[in-house]
């Protein structure tokens, strides 16, 4: 049997340990899909696979046990999934019956966000879908995840680009009864950005993470929601060499800045990627060019807005398997 494995991989299948069997990865940007799509996924698994579905770490589905000989049939079957993808993300995939057009850029994952979670500062699913609309289809190996608040339940700190929702809390002293619920909570659970002085609360913007917990704690709505903002952390990764948490890159930027930097990231990769390698991971490219080059190119033509903070330098750190361990 002859199989073009490059094409197979591009179509979001993989070469598995079982010869002639493959597995299909279904993208679910924002981790949200309707039950019609669920039904279709299970039907494909029943008909072509082993009647099993694996839930991936990036919130997609992987359907294992598909004979490679049936990939074309499966590609036709998943047309409604691709149509739905186009609808939610605004992407134009041109042809939808030939399967997924790319798999390098990974599914954009999201925590449940403000459709359900009281802490979330925005609709994470919507943002994930909008980011997917900008960066997919693409072969560059990039992982992005979006989190509703700095608590980071989606582990955006393990991604190449992690987005954390912020809100500017606005204080109306005339409504404050001085119960200190906000102050105590911020001290115990967050960064201690609030102080109670002369029966009035003071907020230290430098320390404030924009998590919005003070707004949730306040019984009188002395704290209310101001503008929505986002903070961006970058180049977190796992891997077999130098795992590390993502480092703070931007704080207090607007939604369109987030979308624009995701777009610019791809021009940066295109310019600097080492094409002699099968696929160079963006984190390694940044290791090579250095943060300043990355920063300047990704922020090109971006109107950051008044509130924005940009990291002056980044020490990514992390640990090296061979040198930082003490066994």
């Amino acid at each position: 049997m002859s199989v073009d494995t490059k094409k197979l991989v591009k179509n979001a299948y993989r070469v598995t340990k079982e010869r002639y069997l493959t597995a299909l990865r279904v993208r679910v940007p924002g981790g949200h899909l309707d039950t019609k799509q669920m039904t279709l996924i299970s039907r494909i698994a029943d008909r072509y696979g082993r009647g099993e579905v694996h839930i991936t770490t990036r919130q997609g589905f992987e359907i294992p046990g598909i004979p490679m000989s049936r990939m074309e049939e499966v590609n036709r079957e998943i047309t409604p999934l691709l149509d739905a993808l186009q609808k939610t993300t605004g992407i134009d995939l041109k042809v939808t019956f030939e399967g997924y057009p790319a798999a390098g850029t990974r599914n954009v994952s999201a925590c449940i966000g403000n459709r359900v979670c009281p802490f979330a500062n925005y609709d994470t699913t919507r943002l994930a879908q909008d980011i997917e609309g900008i960066i997919y289809p693409n072969d560059f190996h990039v992982k992005i995840a979006v989190s509703g608040c700095p608590n980071d339940c989606i582990k955006a700190h393990m991604q190449d680009v992690g987005i954390l929702g912020q809100v500017e809390p606005l204080y109306d002293s005339k409504r404050c009864i001085g119960c200190k619920a906000c102050v105590d909570n911020c001290r115990k659970r967050v960064t201690g950005a609030l102080k109670f002085h002369n029966f009035t609360v003071q907020r230290d913007h430098e320390k404030c993470t924009g998590c919005g917990e003070c707004i949730l704690k306040c019984p009188t709505a002395a704290w209310t929601r101001g503008e929505k903002y986002y903070s961006v952390v970058i180049m977190g990764r796992t891997g077999k060499k130098n795992p590390r948490l993502a480092a703070p890159f931007l704080r207090w930027v607007a939604r369109d800045v987030v979308l624009k930097i995701c777009e610019n990231l791809y021009s940066y990769i295109d310019k600097h990627i080492d094409r002699s390698l099968p696929k160079e991971h963006v984190g390694n490219i940044v290791d090579r060019t250095g943060y300043p080059v990355f920063r300047d190119e990704v922020l090109q033509n971006v109107d950051l807005g008044e509130r924005a903070m940009v990291a002056k330098h980044i020490n990514f750190g992390g640990y090296e398997y061979h040198s930082n361990a003490s066994f």
Binding site: N114, P118, Y122, D123
Partner: peptide, 15 residues
């Protein structure tokens, strides 16, 4: 209705 002034994001406060 105070638009987007609800405790939770994207919710309004009726007051």
């Amino acid at each position: 209705t105070k638009k987007d002034k609800g405790m939770y994001s994207d919710t309004d406060l009726i007051t």
